[in-house]
Every structure is written in C-alpha cells, then in structure tokens.
Design a protein around this nucleic acid. Sequence first.
DNA 1: ACGATAACTGAAATGGACGTTCCAGTTGAT
DNA 2: ATCAACTGGAACGTCCATTTCAGTTATCGT
Lengths: 187, 187
Amino acid sequence: MSTSTEPPRRADAVRNRRLALDAATALLTEPGVSLTVEAIAKKAGLGAATVVRAFGGKDALLDAAVSRLLEPVVQHARDLLAETTPTQALRIFLRELIAFQAAHYAINDQLGGLDLPATTALRTDLVRAVEEMIDGARRDGAVRTDIDPAIITTLIGQTALAVARTQPPSQELTDAYLTVLLDGLRP
Amino acid sequence: MSTSTEPPRRADAVRNRRLALDAATALLTEPGVSLTVEAIAKKAGLGAATVVRAFGGKDALLDAAVSRLLEPVVQHARDLLAETTPTQALRIFLRELIAFQAAHYAINDQLGGLDLPATTALRTDLVRAVEEMIDGARRDGAVRTDIDPAIITTLIGQTALAVARTQPPSQELTDAYLTVLLDGLRP
DNA sequence: ACGATAACTGAAATGGACGTTCCAGTTGAT
DNA sequence: ATCAACTGGAACGTCCATTTCAGTTATCGT
C-alpha cells in the first residue's frame, strides 16, 4: 500500500540517500566526533541540506543508521538462542555486546536526546532475547533464581554499556566484567 | 599571597556568589532540567550575567557546585576506612555511591563536555579510597586476587554509575547490583 | 551624615553552533 | 526538448554562554 501512492524517486536521490546513510553509520563508529549534519554531509561529499532531506530530518537519518548497526546484533542473539545452550549463549553474547557498545560509543554518548523509534524497537527485541537467555540459564541451574530476570537483564545491559564507556575499553576490563558478573550470577 | 593582591570584594558580590552556587547545587539534584546559566540565574533570583561573572564562567561555577556535593562523599569514604574493616567499608560505601549518583544524576548526564578540575581531583581521591578498601578486603580474604584492584575499582565505579542511570533507580536494582557484584568479587 | 567613586548588576546585544528551509541553478526521466 | 525532481550555498530560527554598558549600590574619606 505504501509504494502505490509514492511518486517515483530519481536515481541520484536514491544514491545520495545511501551515501548519507553510509556516512552516518561510519561516523557512529568514530569516537570523539560531534555528530552534526555538517560532519555527515562532509563525509558523504554532499550538502547538508541534501543529507537532511534524504531522511526527512537528522533524527530519522540516525535512527536508520543505528538500526542498521543494531540489527545484526539482535539477529545474532536470536541465532545463539537457537544454536547453543542459554548459558553458553549468555556468555558469548555478553562479550559481543560489550564489543559492540565499545565500537559504537557515539550511540550512547551523543544520541541521548533524539527520538529513534526503530532503534528503540530493536533494543526491546534485544532485551527480550537476553531475558530468554537468562530464563534458560536459570532452568539449567547456571543462574541464581533469587533475583528477577528483568532486573538481571537491566543490570547486565547497563553494566556492559558502562564498561564500554571507559575509553579506551581494555580487554582486561571486559574480562573482569565477564568474570565477576558471571560468577556473581551463579546460584 | 593570593589575598594580598586581591582587591576587596563587595558584600553583595559575595552574597550573590553564594546564591549562584546554591542554585547550581540545587539544580544538580533535579532530574530532567537543562543545566543552563539562565535556569541557574532564575533559581538564584539573579541575572544570567551576574551568575556567570560570580565564578568567571559556567564551567567554574559547576565545578564548585559539584565539588561541594562530592566532598562529603570522599570524606565519608575516608572515615569508613578508618572506622571499620575494609570489607564492611566497601559494602557500605558502594550503597552510598549508588545513592549519590542516583540523587545527582545530572552530574553524569549533562556535564560531560565541561572542564571541571576540582571535581576531577576529588574523583581521583575517591578512586584512591575505593582502591584502599579493595586492597584491605583482599588482605582479609574477602575479595578475589586474580583481578587487578584498579580494574575492580573501575568496574565498581562504572557499574554504580550505570545502575544509578536507570530512571527511576529502583531499590531492587540496587540490591541486585550489590548482591551480584559482591558475590562475584569473592575469591 | 553625605557625597564621590569604583564595584556591581542585569536587560540587551553579541557571537557561535546547530538543524532546518529557501531558492536559483542543475540534472535525470520521459 | 521539456519539466519536475533534485541539489547545495546561503539564509533563517533557535538555543546557548558570554560581553557590553547604562544605571544602581556598597564603600569610604570627609
């Protein structure tokens, strides 16, 4: 239904939309840059107006860029749930989550006040997947049952974010986080 | 030497300086406010120019305000080290640290890009105190020795910050944090 | 007391950063 | 060849911290 009413889009518009998205995505992985429309436009080799128009606004552009980064992470969480035991999945995924947060520091640093509906939805999916891992790990007797799984999920997510926040995120700190947290989560 | 070359300050200037500092301190405990000079001035019943001039700039004003909040926390950490066992001190202080971060959320939320030398110095003192607690707790056999104390300190601090970040910071999450972390830190 | 004067105040002006919109010129599609 | 879609430099609006400056006030010598 949506495509029928849409007027046809010109080839250069489609190309520039992709360039803008690529540039925004690339900037999300670079630490220390201020995520301005100007910076994205410069990276894309476009004018600022074109970048903004391609998605209808800065928020929508960044929402698309973050979503594109987050999607494979969510997918991997689901794959892990299907492929291995919840306990293993939890261990593997936590490490990946920290790596992701660390690699895309700007997501949690400069996007606080923006409205990112698609990103929020993906985050919900991700939380759901982690909760499933914890539920399974509890059934396997690998995770303590005296704490609400939702609370554990929040604790895990926030802590992963916090560890990734330290610049630069050292391997040593990541290991310590995983060791302490997983030991502390045992029954 | 500093007081001898200083010209005498007028009584109203001293009073307004205190009003500005009080207003800034009060705003640091209120969530959701944008920490603008205008907002501080309104709270203090002063003009924006007066607020800025009282400390020579917004950064210096907020540095003073945050330092005033942080000082008793650092002092309490030192008192705990002197009064009780390191293990007890660690447990008590961690809860207090979360409470402080939660109560003054704006400190970690909106002050990222500012230059706050006094605050940074106090933070260093605080880190040192926590490291002493961990060192002592390790000697008492209450904390694992296979992880660098500095790493543990970072982990603790970042996690406390992360727990406080969740809005609103629930007692349940705080308890879970303390339980999991302290269990995970045991040898 | 009182007036001289330097310190101080705050509304308004300034300047910079940023997202968004305008519009004259350009380009892809038919 | 035509023309609507598209582009991007420039203009605009908003939000800040900071500075200016005309008016006010505390301070001090008399």
